[in-house]
Simulated scan of single mutants.
Amino acid sequence: MSALPDSRYVSLTTFRRSGVAVPTPVWAAPDGGDLVVWTRADSGKVKRLRHTSRVTVAPCDVRGNLQGEAVEAQARLLPPGEWQPALAALARRYGWQWRITYGAGRLVGILRRRERRALIRISPA
């Protein structure tokens, strides 16, 4: 089993129904042997994950320029009951940047009266 990348940003590649790969640079925090990713619930990556759990992850910079080899993995959307450990992992990894970003996202969700966040758990294939 290949280890998942342990970099500040990872390129999360999801796949369209046609098989076309769509890479996106994201924050990812290690949580045990997995990675956790926080994103908008209406993002394209979430929509693509609803029909296929196959993903690849590779270390990258903030702009998505790859800095290593991609690793095959499986991803799943976490139900809200499983969010606490994932949120804690992200808070440990990104510190004050996480608190500001997450806090702003929660405020927008409260003002719009709907949940706009999703958490993804990525496990080695």
Rank of each mutant, 00 (worst) to 15 (best):
R117F: 09
G68V: 02
G95M: 10
W38G: 04
A91V: 11
S7A: 15
R17N: 12
L107H: 05
W27A: 02
T101P: 03
R117V: 13
V22E: 13
I122V: 15
D42H: 12
E69F: 08
S123W: 00
G19T: 11
Y94P: 01
E115P: 05
V10C: 03
L111P: 12
R117M: 13
A58V: 01
Y102D: 09
V20Q: 15
V26T: 02
T14C: 09
P124W: 03
T52E: 09
F15E: 00
Q74G: 08
V22K: 12
A89H: 01
D31A: 14
S2A: 14
V10N: 00
T14I: 04
Y94F: 08
T56M: 03
I122N: 01
S18Q: 11
S53A: 14
E69V: 08
R113K: 15
T24F: 06
A91G: 11
Q97H: 12
V36R: 02
A70S: 15
P79E: 15
R76A: 10
R116N: 13
R40T: 05
L35I: 11
R54F: 07
L66H: 06
G68L: 04
W98L: 11
V108D: 06
V22F: 06
P80Y: 05
R63V: 12
A41F: 07
T39H: 01
R48V: 02
R17W: 05
G81V: 13
A41Y: 07
I110P: 09
I120L: 03
F15W: 04
Q84W: 04
P30D: 08
W98E: 06
A86L: 06
R106A: 09
Y102C: 10
